[in-house]
Design a protein around this nucleic acid. Structure first.
Lengths: 210, 210, 210, 210
DNA sequence: CATGAATGAGAATTCATTCAT
DNA sequence: AATGAATGAATTCTCATTCAT
C-alpha cells in the first residue's frame, strides 16, 4: 500500500487527528488509549505510529491542529462596527469553528484547565492571536467610551474569552440543552458587556429607594 | 494489637485525602498514581487500601470532601441585603473555602469540565446546594427588579457560578498573578451584574450618535 | 508480601540475575525476553521491574555481578612461584569461577565480542583488575628471563587472556567435548607459553635436516 | 515491465548484503532491523523482501557469502614450504579476506560465539574447508617433527584458528590500535607455534637452576 | 521491481490491587 | 494497621512482513 498520494496521506492523518480529538476530549490524555483511537478511526494500532511519534506527540498535534483552524477563522472575521458588533462577529466565528471541530475545542478547553506544563504552553501559544484580536477590539472600545476604563484591557480580554469558554462548557455539560450553540454569540456579548443587572436602572450598591 | 485511636485514624485519612487532592488536581483521575499519592503522603501504597476501597473510591471521596466544607461555608454566609451584597457574601465564602482547600477545588473545577459519566454526577450532586442558594438570591433579585428578567433565573445562576470558576481558572493559570484571590468576590459580582460596558451610558446596539 | 528480610530480597535478586545471565548468554541482550527470564526464575514479569529498572539495567547488572565474583577469585589466587605456576593458578581461579557462574562468563565473553558501546565499557572496566594481575606476573617473568622480551608485556597480557577465552569458547562450542574445564588451566599455560612447535627442536624455518 | 538486467539485480543484492553485514556485525541478528538495513543501503524496506525471503534468510546469506570468498582465498593460498610458511600464507590469505569484507568476518566471529542453534551450524559448515586445510598442514608438520605430537592435530587446528580469531577481536576491540591487520599473520604464527616463553631457553616447569 | 503504508503479533513497561509478614 | 513484594491485566510501542500502487 505504498505510493499513496500526499492527499491520501493527509486524509488519513486528518482522520486520525479527528478521532484522537474525540477520545482526548472524552477521556483526557492519560485516559485515552492509542489502540482505541486507531480502531475507532478504522486503522490498526501501528498506523498511528506511522503518523505520530507517540501518544503525547499525537495529543500535541491535536491541540495544534485544533487551534490552527480557529485562528484562521478569527482572522477572517470582520473588524468593523461597534465593539458590540465586533465581539459578536468574533464570537460567531468562534462558534462556527466549534460546530466544525467540537472535539478539538473540547480538548483545548479541557486542557486549558489542567495547567499541565506539557500542554499548557501549547495552548497559550495558540490562543495568543485570538486574545490579541479581542484586545484590539476592546482597546478601541475604551477609546470610544463604550467600554469601561476602570479595568485593564488585558483583564477584560481574559474575561471575554473566559465567558465564551464558560458557555461552551455549559453547553457540553447540559448535553446541548442550554445554551444552544447559535445562542452563544449573543449570550456571550450580553453577559460580557451588560451583565445581569436589570436594564435601565442604576447599578446601585444598596437598597432600592422608594 | 496496634489498635490506633479513632483520632489517629482520622488524621491519616485526612492526610491521604489532602495529598490525593493535590495529585488529582495536577494530573486527573487517570493520570494520578496510587503509589505516588501514598508516598507523597508519607505512607506506603498498601495503607491507601486500608482507608479507601480503590483509586476511584478515593477520588470520589476527594470530591465529596471538597464539596462538604464548601457547602457548610455557603450555608453560613449571610442571606440578607441586596442581591449584590448577597452574591458578594457567597463569593467571599467560596473564596475562603478556596484558600483553605485549593487542591480540592481544583479537582472539582477540573473534573467539572471533563463530563466523565463516572465523576460528573458526583459533582452535580455536590454542587446542587450551592446552586440552589445562588438561585434563591437571584430569584429575589428579579422580584426586586434588580436583576434582569429576560433570562431564566436558572441560566443566570449557571452564569454566576461559571464566572466564579472562570476567575479561579485565570488565577491558577496566571500563577496567581491575576486575579488575586481577594479580588475575586468583587470581580465576580461586578463582572456578573454590570458587565464590561461603560457605565452611565445607554447600552446601545449601534453606532455612537454624534 | 511485604517486610521480607534483606536476605530474602537479596536471594530473589540473585535468582533473577542468575536466570537472566542464562538467557542473555543464550540469546544476547536483544534476543532475551524479560517475561521469559521472569517466568524461568519463578516470578511474574512485574517482579523483575521491582528489582531492575529495565531490561538493559538488568543486563548491565549481570555483567557487573558476573565480573565481581571473578575479580574476587583472582585476587585470592596465589602470586608466588614461577611465571608458569602463577599463570596456572590464575587460570585455575578463572576456571573455578567459570564452573560456578558459567552463564555470567558466557555473557561477558559474548558481549566482549560485540563491542557494543553500551556494554563494552562495562566489560573493560570490570576486566581491568584481572588484566593487571596477569600483567604483573608477566612483567616479573620478563625480568626473570622466562618470558620473551621482544613483545610489549601489554600485548602478551591480552594474548593470555584471549587464549583463556578462546578455550572457553571451544569448550562451549563443542558442547563440553574439548577442552574439558579441568584441562583448561594447563592447556592455556602450555599454549600460551610453549606454543605448538615441537619441543627440543630448533624452530626451523625450513625442512628438517637429516 | 521494469525488467532489470541480471547485472543490476546482482548489484542491488550485493549492496543489500554488504549493508546487512555491517548491521548484523554491529547489533547481531535480533538487534538489527530490516528497515535500518534497507534505508542504509539506499532502498526501501520492501526491496529487501524482493531479494531475500526473510530477515533470517538474509542473515544466512550474509554468513554464506562471507564464507564463500574466504574459502576461495584459502584454496588459492600456497601449500608448499615449511609448516610455518604454510600457516603464515593461510593467515595472510585470511587477513586479505578480512580487509575486503570486515563486516562479514565480524558477523561470523560474533555469531561463532553465540552458539545459536539456528546460526551455529551454518558457521561450522562454512568453516569446514578452512579447518581442513589447517589440519592438513599441521598433520604434515607432525610427520616432519616440526609440530608437537603430544596433542591431537584436531585440537591444534582449533587452537590456530582460535588464535587468529582472537587477534581479530583484539584488533576490533582496540579500535585498530593493536594488532594492526598486517601484523596479524606473523603474530598468529609466532603465538601459535612458539608461545610466549623466552626463546633459546629450556621451557622448564620450575625454577631456574644455576 | 521498488515503494512505503498498513498491519498485528509480540515485547517492554506500568500500575492498581492483593496479601503475607 | 502498616508495609511493600508479588502479581498480571492493560497499555504503549516496535518491527517483520504483506501487498496495493
Amino acid at each position: 500500500m505504498a505510493r499513496i498520494t500526499a492527499a491520501t496521506r493527509e486524509k488519513v492523518r486528518k482522520q486520525l487527528l479527528e478521532t484522537a480529538a474525540e477520545h482526548f476530549a472524552e477521556r483526557g490524555l492519560a485516559g485515552a488509549q492509542v489502540d482505541g483511537i486507531a480502531v475507532a478511526a478504522g486503522f490498526a494500532k501501528g498506523t498511528v505510529y506511522n503518523y505520530f511519534a507517540s501518544k503525547e506527540a499525537l495529543f500535541a498535534e491535536v491541540i495544534t491542529e485544533g487551534c490552527r483552524a480557529a485562528v484562521q477563522r478569527y482572522a477572517a472575521s470582520r473588524h468593523e462596527g461597534s465593539v458590540r458588533e465586533c465581539l459578536r462577529a468574533l464570537a460567531a466565528a468562534d462558534v462556527a469553528v466549534m460546530s466544525e471541530q467540537e472535539s478539538f475545542m473540547k480538548v483545548v478547553v479541557r486542557e486549558a484547565m489542567s495547567f499541565d506544563p506539557r500542554t499548557y504552553p501549547l495552548i497559550v501559544e495558540h490562543l495568543g492571536p485570538y486574545l490579541e484580536q479581542v484586545q484590539q477590539i476592546l482597546t478601541r472600545g475604551v477609546a470610544a467610551g463604550d467600554v469601561r476604563d476602570d479595568r485593564p484591557v488585558s483583564q477584560l480580554t481574559l474575561a471575554f474569552v473566559g465567558v465564551l469558554a464558560l458557555l461552551y462548557v455549559q453547553h457540553w455539560g447540559s448535553g446541548g440543552a442550554w445554551p444552544a450553540l447559535d445562542e452563544v454569540p449573543d449570550l456571550a456579548v450580553t453577559l460580557f458587556l451588560d451583565g445581569a443587572a436589570a436594564r435601565g436602572r442604576p447599578r446601585s450598591m444598596g437598597k432600592k429607594t422608594p
